[in-house]
Design a protein around this nucleic acid. Sequence first.
DNA 1: TTGTAAGCGTTATCAC
DNA 2: GTGATAACGCTTACAA
Lengths: 339, 339
Amino acid sequence: MKVTITDIAIAAGVAKSTVSKVLNDSPKISQETKQKVREIMKQMNYTPSSIATGLARQSSSNIGLLIDMSKSSEFLNQFFYNIIGGIESVIGSLKYELTIANVEHNHPDGHFLHRLVRSKKVDGLIANTSVLTEELCTRLNHLEFPYVSLGEVAASGCWVDFDNEAGGRMLTRHLLEEGYSAVAFIGGYEGDPLFIRRLEGCRQVLGQAGKPLRKEWIINGEAEEAFGYQAAKQLLLSETPPDSVICMSNFAAYGVLLAARELGVKVPTQLGIATFDDYPLSRYTSPPLTSLNLDTFHLGVSAGKLLMERIGGKNEALQKLLLAPELLPRESSCRHSRT
Amino acid sequence: MKVTITDIAIAAGVAKSTVSKVLNDSPKISQETKQKVREIMKQMNYTPSSIATGLARQSSSNIGLLIDMSKSSEFLNQFFYNIIGGIESVIGSLKYELTIANVEHNHPDGHFLHRLVRSKKVDGLIANTSVLTEELCTRLNHLEFPYVSLGEVAASGCWVDFDNEAGGRMLTRHLLEEGYSAVAFIGGYEGDPLFIRRLEGCRQVLGQAGKPLRKEWIINGEAEEAFGYQAAKQLLLSETPPDSVICMSNFAAYGVLLAARELGVKVPTQLGIATFDDYPLSRYTSPPLTSLNLDTFHLGVSAGKLLMERIGGKNEALQKLLLAPELLPRESSCRHSRT
DNA sequence: TTGTAAGCGTTATCAC
DNA sequence: GTGATAACGCTTACAA
């Protein structure tokens, strides 16, 4: 039923190795032979077995994308499709396939290390920081196994990330340009690098403008609707309410919007709102939210490229990459009419 | 550097075949031998090569999920993460991995047929109807290759889908119960099975209630914001405006909301709105949208199970599966206060 | 240029 | 219970 390289060899009256060379378009095979063999392959409807090829070549032509579905990491969840698309667009044309693996299954420790890495199911790995702990990075480094992290990673790892500091600057600068001066920051946990970077950007711009960020205007917490709502109420009802807020997520910003509506605080006149992420709500709230768009497809592309370079042996390839975000000004923070 | 089954055999002083049997926990190996060999494997940090195993077993332990990124099929795009999670949760515990392949790359014809199927990169396939054309189904059938379609498929294929007809009924019944009686239907194209099913459900309930659906209240088109907006305006400004509308998507419903706001039509008092899909906007619009939630994780689970059964040889396994949607009543269609 | 033969790392079929 | 040995389907020196 199934036709193998041997069948082709026999049918064409040549040796297996010759067929193999034709398969790989070796320059040391005559055109005539190539023609003939290819003809036969077509006739017999032959497709080489990727597994056998893999064994012989010691490569799976697969790269793995690790996710942890147990932590509903909003980030991946939302942008998954785009990231995958980005990765696929670069590895696909290199004849690689993308394998998605859920780390949750991998019981104790780094079980995926066995299941995927050591068993050679994949030739390289992409994962976001929530799964790629520092310890794992060092272990992968030790195995000399190629990987790229989605998100900045401390160790001597290779990563791509968005420039969160620049993002903080962009959002803050925008608010100042729109005439706001008392900027609050809502969402994120103190230890979280994402929070730290973003806030730092914010702090820089405010500092330069001579309007230092006040401690009581930084509210830490899970960047969800309920939290945003609470945080906004707290801020707006305080003795020194800010006139604008930067949110760590769409959902937190939505919560702020609800609180403002409830308290009769007009957006954007009395309160300006700007948020990280453009997806999924920014366009659809009332008023629509000024937001920072992250090109996640591009993130996937970058991660894919980096990884393929490493697999290709360029170990000296670029190690770290920061992608610029894009500001999308919308009604929630624009007091001046825009042309 | 790398340790193979042979190394283990030598170190343990047994034959390769014995090690292999230990690996597969064969009952015909003594406990002592097993202990000993396993001990050695641990010491030498051995992990079997999945590729070699694959070659010997003639299986890749991979199942493929086909997507077509060129068509921004909203469905997959939005629910991708959940579907993948669902599939993974069933195949993962069976030691299978999930391979994502973008069909777009696959130049002419069904190139993925070679790249994935014939080359044995995957043992089975899951794809939604937009890529699994009827022709492809018959070809896969002919190859006796296991696959499951996400979405109803005409041919003698195996598929899982949501019960769209029931969905149409649920939404319509809800509107009637809330006291609406003139129901319009917005979005979807005439030939689209999704549209046909959903409208049919709607028609059934209206028919039973003696309030037949009027032709001029069915507006066909791409279920996007702009279209929903236009359609709603057209309906609301007509001589016989409906008092409620069912939308094919969140985005279309959002457009309707905008139109109503602009025309000063109160929702839900003067116009009831209910929509298919709960994600991503329903909860966050003002007012929040009554919607039909589709458990896409479960869809993935079902597809995975079905596929694994077929791979397992149960060719007589269940062929078609309809999943029930869930109604989430919200403010956009609830005139009566709810307890 | 083409052919021969030895891998690649498992599993599977028999003997013993 | 355990051990040779032949697959599995392709690549790759090394010969010819």
